[in-house]
Write a protein that binds this DNA or RNA. Sequence first.
DNA 1: GTCTATATTCCGATAGAC
DNA 2: GTCTATCGGAATATAGAC
Lengths: 181, 181
Amino acid sequence: MNDTKAEILRIANELIRSVGYNSFSYANISLPLNIKNAAIHYYFPAKADLGVALIRENIDGFKEITESWKMLSYRQQYINYITMHDYFVKKHWVCIVGSLSPSFETLPEPMQKELQTLINLVIAWLTDLLEKGLESKDFSFKEPPRTKACIIHAALLSSLLMNKVLNNDAYKTIQNGLLAL
Amino acid sequence: MNDTKAEILRIANELIRSVGYNSFSYANISLPLNIKNAAIHYYFPAKADLGVALIRENIDGFKEITESWKMLSYRQQYINYITMHDYFVKKHWVCIVGSLSPSFETLPEPMQKELQTLINLVIAWLTDLLEKGLESKDFSFKEPPRTKACIIHAALLSSLLMNKVLNNDAYKTIQNGLLAL
DNA sequence: GTCTATATTCCGATAGAC
DNA sequence: GTCTATCGGAATATAGAC
């Protein structure tokens, strides 16, 4: 992948997290790169192609990072998951799922499919981790693992939204609550 | 409030929950009402005025409904809160906080302020309820009440997002998990 | 109170030169 | 691979008639 394409994806990734998919334009990307907005169409013919690429990046990234955690203890993997968005917090960014979900109906169909894949991937991974950690007594909770996984994922996602809107300790508060598993 | 204004608010409320604030236009409201989009400007000069009115409706509505629950047991009030969005689920709507938060930076400043007011109102009410219910032994949990309130609010908000995107049992799953307080 | 008509701006996208 | 130039459409908003 050449530099321009990578730079487009980097900036689009920031924009989708800060203002959302429907609220950024090719001009928001081309200006900081000092290229014309029409040039972006060479790499991503339609905005939907850029959107799909962004979600795919997240899918691949999640698979890679969780794979790299394989040797760690269940608890350490859980801690890594809960803290993996720490970098976003200072910038008031949200995760891509939280960004895209409210406007799901407005998304092009290929983006909808990719987003569903991403969420299912995360829930499945977290459910599996909680299941194994419960069996090994590393974790202790009373809900079924999938229920617990949904609640944890949901709370973590919203904590980024609250961080953006309230700009207070909500993210840390929720994170600490979730870490006390 | 006359009928047209009320109808505008009703349809805008649906639109903000289904497609989001930045993704609906005055035409989406004027068409079903069989009026011209310019006519809406008479009631709401700018789109931001409509946005503010929508959030205010939610603020007033939350105050009214929680006030009407005052005589109920702490547990029943909690159950009512957790199930208050049930009507939205079939329609794949999200709450107004979940709809507006990801695009917070793009919102006009008056809407930002109202949204912050709404979230703080809900968190304060829920924290107070959990505090009283913990003291009276109606609830049992180990986190500080405000931490628990943030987690519950966050999980509930995201459950509506997951319901929209995945269209599966995530909402019910999370709801049941939260009810087992 | 609602209309027509229009101004302005911006967006995503395409065609074709270089 | 990036450019200029431009199209078609849609959005918010305003002015002024009725």
